Simulated scan of single mutants.
Amino acid sequence: MKTVLCYGDSNTYGFDPRNGLRYPSDIRWTGRLQQLLGQDFMVIEEGCNGRTTAFDDPTEPWKNGLPYLKPCLNTHKPIDIVILLLGTNDLKNCFNVSVKEIAEGAGKLVDVIKEFTADKQGFIPKIILVSPPEIGEGIKSSPFSEKYDEDAIESSRSFPEYYKKIAEDKDCIF
């Protein structure tokens, strides 16, 4: 059986903004992936609302994706594929970082995955680096409007460019 670790934020968690809970597993992208891959694969959901690539949230520093990555990799080894989908939360006003810096944060996670798995499981999994989705205009009227400014909408449009470059530089699937 092949193990697929999906490491991400609320998009991976399956956050339902209507009620603050989760969408049912058959609605979440990770659940649909499991259905598509079938019994020969085990899809592991490691999503956390508000998780960043490598930045400490001043109010919830435990949502930094970097410190939890090694324990997560160790818990679920051996891992054959890692799908990494982080970066949206890094656009919050409190971080004041560019999309390039966010992509570099994702690159740090890729480096950790490679180094840690090579040491702890004897091989490096395939890594799929997924560009975060664009932030929609609806953010302005959402409960998250105070955390993101209008620049976040425009900045999010350049995620694919920077993430593709990191994926190429780090030999990942984009």
Rank of each mutant, 00 (worst) to 15 (best):
T3A: 10
C6K: 05
Y7K: 03
G8W: 03
G8I: 03
D9S: 05
D9E: 03
N11R: 10
F15P: 03
P17D: 09
N19M: 11
Y23K: 10
P24T: 12
S25E: 09
R28V: 07
R28E: 12
G31V: 04
G38I: 10
I44E: 15
E46F: 05
G50C: 05
T52E: 09
D57N: 07
E60G: 05
E60F: 09
W62F: 10
P67R: 00
C72H: 00
H76G: 03
K77Y: 06
I81F: 11
V82S: 00
V82M: 06
I83P: 03
L84N: 06
L85M: 10
L85T: 01
N93R: 15
C94V: 14
K100R: 13
E101Y: 05
G107N: 02
V112Q: 13
I113T: 08
K114M: 09
D119N: 15
Q121R: 08
Q121L: 07
P125G: 11
I128S: 05
V130L: 09
I135A: 03
G138H: 04
S142W: 06
P143H: 10
P143G: 08
F144G: 11
D149T: 01
A152F: 11
I153P: 13
I153F: 13
I153W: 14
E154C: 07
I166W: 13
A167K: 00
E168Y: 09
D169P: 03
D171I: 05
F174L: 09
